[in-house]
Amino acid sequence: MNLNRRQALGLATGAAAFAATGFRALPAMAAAEDAEKKLMEFAGGKALETGRITLTAPEIAENGNTVPVSVSVESAMEGDDMVESVMLLAEGNPSPDVATFRFTALSGVAAVTTRMRLAKTQNVIAVARMKDGSVYMDKKQVKVTIGGCGG
């Protein structure tokens, strides 16, 4: 075993691409572009605004197979002040789609928590479309670690 540190890091990067997250490694750029396209479709020509929406995700995920994420949107959830839907995207997965959530007045609060798969370190994006057509976005980078032990 005559690896130097640089070679070892190279191997570690290779392992990242094959990290056992249930996804094959596909070209990352394509997925990011795909995510961008989905965002634009969802926004329907409106500008992506910041604020009102909060995406909560760990800065470092202990395992990419099960990453807890929460999204909440500030809204009275009655009358015209309603969140219609929230889309969750992952820029670096083979396909950016994660889930689309739809809320109603009976939701009371526009908030959802779930667990998702991340093939590697990447941005997770949450975007909300309000009843008046305005669109809000939040983005978090989640670092997906490669454990020392495959177990």
Binding site: M1, L3, A8, L11, A12, G14, A15, F18, A19, A20, G148, C149, G150
Partner: peptide, 9 residues
């Protein structure tokens, strides 16, 4: 991944 993980450990 095992092959790669081993030497790194």
């Amino acid at each position: 991944s095992l092959f790669i993980t081993g030497p790194v450990i």
